[in-house]
């Protein structure tokens, strides 16, 4: 069992490829061009196209869900978006279980890329 009070969860590592934001835009329906059009992204002051925040949150959710034993056990997830995520750089999701009470575990998580926290203060709960 990857969820145990006071213990780290299994890390998740993923490197979104260059075209991931295009596939995620199609899959999710979020076609904001800051994620897919480098010319537009730089015009509005970004260094390049950036990852969808909800894609990055989906990686945090995946780490929580896989550690919790599947989607039926996941109860909630709350995050704050900070910094920007970029394609072609590895994302690491890590975390630890802070408590287990009445069959519900509380897990704190973070997603980092290049030493920047792109998702912080993530708190998930899951049935154990």
């Amino acid at each position: 069992m990857a969820i145990e009070a006071g213990q780290p969860i299994d890390e998740l590592k993923v490197t979104p490829d260059r075209f991931l934001p295009i596939r995620y835009a199609g899959a999710s329906g979020d076609f904001n061009p800051i994620h897919t059009d480098k010319e537009y992204a730089t015009m509005v002051g970004l260094p390049s196209t950036i990852l969808h925040g909800l894609y990055s949150m989906a990686q945090v959710a995946r780490a929580l869900t896989d550690n919790a034993g599947g989607p039926a056990n996941v109860k909630s997830l709350s995050v704050q978006f900070r910094g920007m995520g970029f394609p072609e750089k590895e994302i690491t999701v890590s975390g630890s279980t802070t408590s287990v009470e009445d069959g519900v575990a509380t897990v704190e998580l973070v997603a980092e890329q290049d030493g920047n926290q792109i998702i912080r203060n993530a708190v998930g709960t899951a049935a154990v």
Partner: peptide, 28 residues
């Protein structure tokens, strides 16, 4: 697109074997 590999999300047979009517949507 989000990199899920759990067969519950991808394979209707696996989902049915786990007691679901069809593939399960990932929480997100």
């Amino acid at each position: 697109a989000v990199g899920e590999t759990n067969p519950l999300y991808l394979d209707p047979e696996a989902a049915r074997a786990a007691g679901y009517a069809d593939v399960v949507a990932p929480p997100m």
